[in-house]
């Protein structure tokens, strides 16, 4: 061992030892940990936790956003309970879960099953291309789709071209179709995230499971159903929680696509109401109450999903 250190293969090891010895001396393990956590913690406290607490506090006040806040207890929440627009907005948020969560997960699974088991040339290009919507700015996405959905835009032009002119609709301005139009853009944005998560997850599945499945005569669909899908449980859960939160807090797409919830209030969502109340109607306290309610719903449902999952894992383990 001793002479090995001279040949340049292991100086890193002695370096690591020295480092370890040195750093252990002045601190106990615990204080060391705190030291490392501190910068992140300070940033988190200042920019996340304090504003959240501030929002909770303001939600108990009648506040224009610039006048001195006046404490009114739970009046904002009482009003919220009776607010039809708020109920409609929350309802729309849950409607968008279909498009933000369910469709992207199904689409992601489908694409993953196509891409993971067949060796296609130029796969990296396909994968990158399919992921592009996810990394684009939502405002850019909104502007592009607004143009596509234009009454005389590409979608309607294509419909005319292929002889389906009776299907032409003023998509984003139509009371029936606008929610679906906005939702479908959400699906287009979210499926990329699901796909990448699943592609990564599928690589962690033991190849031998597939080999065994093949030996037992499973076709690709059965391989996917009995091997891939169970192996992707964790990734599906993560995709569900992430996209579900996106669906409940969507703002930018609606703001750009239907100018904040039109036609009428067909596509209005909670974040838009928070924004309108806080900045346009000078009702920052009421807006804060909406934001707190929305955050509570998100936290409660996410927590429930994780709890169910962990319980499931426990029962599987025993």
């Amino acid at each position: 061992m001793q002479n090995l250190s001279g040949n340049g293969a292991l100086p890193s090891r002695t370096f690591m030892q020295r480092l370890r010895r040195k750093s252990v001396v002045p601190f106990s393990n615990k204080s060391q940990a705190i030291l490392f956590i501190l910068p992140g913690l300070v940033i988190y406290l200042t920019f996340v936790l304090l504003p959240i607490l501030g929002t909770v506090r303001y939600s108990l006040h009648d506040w224009t956003g610039f006048s001195p806040p006046e404490y009114i207890g739970f009046d904002n929440y009482r009003e919220l309970y009776r607010d039809e627009d708020f109920r409609k907005a929350i309802g729309n948020n849950f409607f968008f879960v279909i498009f933000y969560t369910i469709i992207p997960i199904l689409l992601g699974l489908f694409l993953t099953s196509l891409m993971s088991r067949s060796k296609l040339k130029g796969m990296a290009i396909f994968r990158t291309g399919l992921f592009v919507p996810q990394v684009m700015s939502p405002v850019v996405v909104g502007i592009i789709w607004r143009w596509l959905f234009e009454y005389r835009g590409p979608i309607n032009q294509t419909l005319t071209l292929i002889g389906l002119s009776e299907w032409i609709k003023p998509w984003l301005g139509d009371f029936t179709y606008a929610p679906y139009a906005v939702g479908s853009v959400g699906s287009w944005v979210q499926y990329g995230l699901c796909m990448i998560l699943f592609l990564a997850g599928i690589q962690a599945i033991n190849e031998e499971l597939y080999d065994t499945a093949i030996v037992f005569g499973a076709n690709p669909l059965q391989q996917f159903w009995y091997v891939s899908l169970p192996g992707l449980r964790q990734q599906i859960l993560v995709a569900f929680v992430l996209t579900f939160i996106s669906a409940l807090r969507v703002f930018d797409l609606v703001f750009v696509l239907t100018r904040g919830g039109g036609p009428g209030k067909e596509t209005i969502v909670t974040s838009i109401l928070v924004y309108q109340n806080t900045f346009n109607l000078n009702r920052a306290g009421y807006g804060a109450a909406m934001a707190v309610t929305l955050a509570t719903i998100i936290v409660a449902i996410s927590a429930a999903v994780f709890w169910l999952q962990s319980r499931n894992d426990d029962t599987n383990a025993t």
Binding site: R146, F149, E150, Y151, R152, I168, K169, P170, W171, L172, G173, D174, P263
Partner: peptide, 8 residues
């Protein structure tokens, strides 16, 4: 305009 609901 026809389709005015969908025009900006």
């Amino acid at each position: 305009t026809p389709g005015f609901e969908g025009m900006d």
